[in-house]
Computed example of a mutant assay.
Amino acid sequence: MQLPDDRKYLATHEWVKKEGDLLVVGITDFAQDQLGDLVFVGEFTVGSQLAAGDTAGVVESVKAASDIYAPVAGQLVEFNTKLEDGPDMLNEVPYETWIFKLKPDNAADFEHLLSGQDYAAQLD
């Protein structure tokens, strides 16, 4: 499994990438593979304040629904509205398709997330 090394990961199968003072969040290739064909991405509330581990929104597939979690505490500042009409983008290019952006309360919290190697190890 290839994991881009320009980002961090969560045990709940989200990836997190720094973009200026924001964190960009998507789901891993493993997650989209396990879920199958995605049919809905939503329930993300722009402006909401989230604690680390809070549910930020949901993705639904033909197999199951799955919560998407905030990697760190912060404010949800943007949702990728392209996913409303094209949730399958997450199946096709999961590492190029972001779901939401978060302005972290403490930028240093990013450093405590899993490396690609640590994430891969917990999948074994």
Rank of each mutant, 00 (worst) to 15 (best):
P4M: 10
D33Q: 15
Y69L: 13
D109K: 00
P94D: 10
G53C: 11
A31D: 14
V41P: 01
G86M: 02
K63S: 04
M89T: 02
H112S: 15
L22E: 12
S61A: 06
E60K: 08
K8F: 10
D54W: 13
V41M: 04
V24W: 07
E43W: 12
A11Y: 12
A31R: 03
L83N: 02
H13M: 13
L23M: 11
G42Q: 09
L50D: 01
E19V: 10
D21Q: 15
E60M: 05
D109Y: 00
E92I: 08
S61W: 10
K17E: 11
S48K: 15
G57K: 03
V59R: 02
L50M: 07
V16Y: 04
I99Y: 02
E96H: 01
V46G: 04
A120P: 08
E92F: 03
P94Q: 05
G57I: 02
G57S: 07
V24N: 07
M1A: 14
V72A: 06
A56R: 01
P104Y: 09
L38D: 03
Q117N: 10
F40H: 12
S115E: 14
L83P: 03
A120I: 15
K18W: 07
Y95R: 03
K82F: 03
Q32M: 11
A70N: 04
V24L: 13
K82C: 02
P104H: 05
L90S: 04
E60Y: 06
K18A: 14
T55M: 13
K18H: 06
H112N: 12
S66M: 10
I27V: 15
V93Q: 04
G36T: 07
D21A: 15
G57A: 06
Q2G: 07
V72G: 00
D105H: 01
A11N: 15
I27P: 03
K82W: 01
D33E: 15
Q2R: 05
T28G: 14
V25E: 05
G116L: 12
Y119D: 12
H13L: 14
K8R: 15
P104M: 10
D109T: 08
G42W: 06
R7A: 08
Y119C: 11
L76E: 02
E43K: 13
D37P: 12
E92Y: 03
L102A: 01
F79I: 00
N106P: 00
L90R: 03
D88L: 03
D124F: 07
D6H: 14
Q75D: 08
L23E: 02
G20M: 12
Y9P: 03
V58G: 03
P71T: 11
G57W: 04
L102W: 03
T12H: 11
H13F: 12
K8Q: 15
Y69P: 03
I99G: 02
D85V: 00
F79C: 00
N80A: 09
G116E: 08
L23N: 04
F110Q: 01
I68D: 01
S66D: 09
T45M: 13
E14A: 11
S48C: 06
D21R: 11
A52F: 01
G26I: 04
D118F: 04
E84N: 09
E43N: 14
Q34Y: 09
P104D: 07
T81M: 00
D33K: 12
G53S: 09
G74V: 07
K101H: 05
A108M: 02
P4Q: 09
D85L: 00
M89Q: 12
T28F: 08
V58Y: 12
A52M: 03
S48W: 05
K18L: 14
V62K: 11
Q49I: 10
V58F: 12
D29N: 14
A73T: 05
